[in-house]
């Protein structure tokens, strides 16, 4: 009888332990890393990035936390306005999201900025931070670092005199086979603020210049949000590939001939 009890008890213990192995809900780990904090008086802005603890040349996905008297703001919007100054020259703009809205899941105000140059001893990045247009911290310095995976292409559309800027988002580390191809398109008129281009049609053509062939099964990028277009590029073998991108807006091609292209070192 003692043995029977022991067996029953062991069985209960076994099944109860098995039950405890079920997956417990895990707090999602934030993909954002804090980059910097700016504050003044009672206000504080914390800047986060998905690209690590540094701001990098090219597209940066950003998050901002806002505090007033150490109380976090969870509604409204943030304006983050970066600009670059060169010693002895006028400031110039760079593409950024006009309004950062609060994301309940990410628990911060989210948006992006595209930095078109790195910081150096004669070139300085500054930015303004504003919450709900109620309080603003102006001209705060920050640094932008090189990003080997980033690529950007500028060109002037002769028909409209718009300066277009296309920045690669993905792939930063391309592999043989199908790769997600993602880029963001902006335009600017006479060096004023950049605006997202949401009505473009893109036609990509991967090409391996050293071998003289392209690839099949590519998917032309289509608009997903905020000037961002996403498609697929097929790199059939390792080596250097170009991805030409012919772009039209309102049925008028805005890219030169041959079209602008990104260069990929496929491994």
């Amino acid at each position: 009888m003692k043995y029977l009890t022991l067996i029953l008890f062991s069985g209960l213990l076994f099944f109860s332990c098995k039950g405890e192995d079920t997956v417990a809900p895990v707090e999602p780990v934030s993909e954002y890393t804090k980059v910097l904090t700016v504050d003044s008086a009672n206000f504080k802005f914390e800047l986060y990035s998905t690209g690590g603890s540094r701001l990098l040349v090219g597209y940066n996905e950003l998050g901002i936390k806002v505090f007033e008297n150490n109380v976090e703001k969870t509604d409204g919007f943030v304006r983050y306005i970066p600009s670059m100054f060169h010693t002895g020259e006028q400031e110039h703009k760079t593409p950024y999201k006009e309004f950062f809205y609060y994301d309940q899941q990410k628990k911060m105000f989210t948006g992006y900025a595209c930095y078109i140059m790195i910081s150096d001893p004669t070139s300085f990045w500054i930015s303004d931070y504003s919450y709900n247009d109620v309080f603003t911290l102006k001209r705060k310095f920050f640094d932008v670092y090189p990003n080997p995976g980033s690529q950007m292409r500028f060109w002037l559309d002769q028909n409209t005199n718009y300066l277009y800027l296309m920045i690669l988002i993905n792939p930063a580390d391309p592999k043989t086979g199908l790769n997600n191809f993602k880029c963001i398109l902006h335009r600017s008129f006479e060096n004023s603020r950049y605006s997202e281009v949401d009505s473009a049609s893109m036609f990509i053509r991967p090409w391996m210049p050293s071998h003289g062939h392209g690839s099949s099964s590519n998917v032309n990028p289509s608009w997903i949000r905020n000037g961002i277009y996403e498609g697929k590029a097929n790199f059939t073998m390792a080596g250097t590939w170009y991805v030409y991108d012919s772009i039209s807006v309102n049925n008028q091609f805005i890219t030169p001939n041959p079209p602008v292209y990104f260069v990929f070192d496929v491994r």
Partner: peptide, 15 residues
Amino acid sequence: MGVWDYEKDWRENNN
């Protein structure tokens, strides 16, 4: 198995 690039570097196939 792979390909030589224009700098004669050997690059192995991933697939």
